[in-house]
Amino acid sequence: MDITTLLQASADGVMLGMMYILIALGLTLVYSILGIVNFAHAQFYMLGGFLTWWLFGEKHLGYFLTLIIAMVGIGFFGVLVERLCFRPFRGKVLEAFMISLGLIWVFEQSVLKIMGVWEKGVPRAFLGKIEFLGIQFYTERLVVTLIGIGLIVALQFFIKYTRHGRAMRAIAQDRECTALQGVNIDLTCSLAFGVGCALAAAAGVLLGPVLYISPYMGGPPILKAFIIIILGGLGSIPGCLIGGLFLGLVDAIGSSFVSLQAVEVLTFAFIFLMLLVRPRGLMGGLKAHE
């Protein structure tokens, strides 16, 4: 096993893991606060990707400005979706599940109609490589990883130290008591949904130049997000981090040293074991709406 290749593969794995974590965090946040499993969550990742193609690729706006616009714009769009589509069905798990499935189709087909069937590429945002301790890392992937880490840290800060973050934690623990404390439940839920969508959009912006953009690009990440949540535990942010890093590293190291088919087998074998040994996931716990 070549140590240089191992370190480079690990760097790729961390990058991928960060992106999956961003998507999974939004999903787990929405579940913790609103009690719904939003299968359409990765569609906001797809929308972020298309916005990147348009603003950064076609209109040549700055990369970081594109990131901010995508997060804010799609975050607000998420708030609208929550208000119109999910709020009427709060507390009704099956109905919310059906709504989210319908939204997948609506988003995909709408984008397909507007943008066409062919995939699109986004020019690379950062070229070249950086050498560190004799190992060469691709600048673009490094920047994406660092921004991903930054967003995760920002989310942790928001959840732990801001008023709205504390309100979200309180709702996750006990919605009724939180309401009795005078917290605006509707506003907090909308904010949580918007933040989740903003994180997914950020992943779309960051991965857009690395991969490619397609109306169907939401499919694989939502599956990975659910795997992360199963591994880490539904409703657990630290669990998401561990699950995401595990998934990214297995993917990158497995494909570098074994084969791509082995990666699939290893991932699902581990999930199987996890469900047998600890069905709640590594760090899953009870939440208020269970």
């Binding site: 790729d12 499919g219 694989p220 570098s256 084969s259």
Partner: peptide, 15 residues
């Protein structure tokens, strides 16, 4: 050979 849902190919292409 790769699964159609595979997203990143850096590892396998390096190999």
């Amino acid at each position: 050979y790769y699964e159609r849902a595979q997203e990143d190919f850096h590892g396998v292409l390096g190999r």
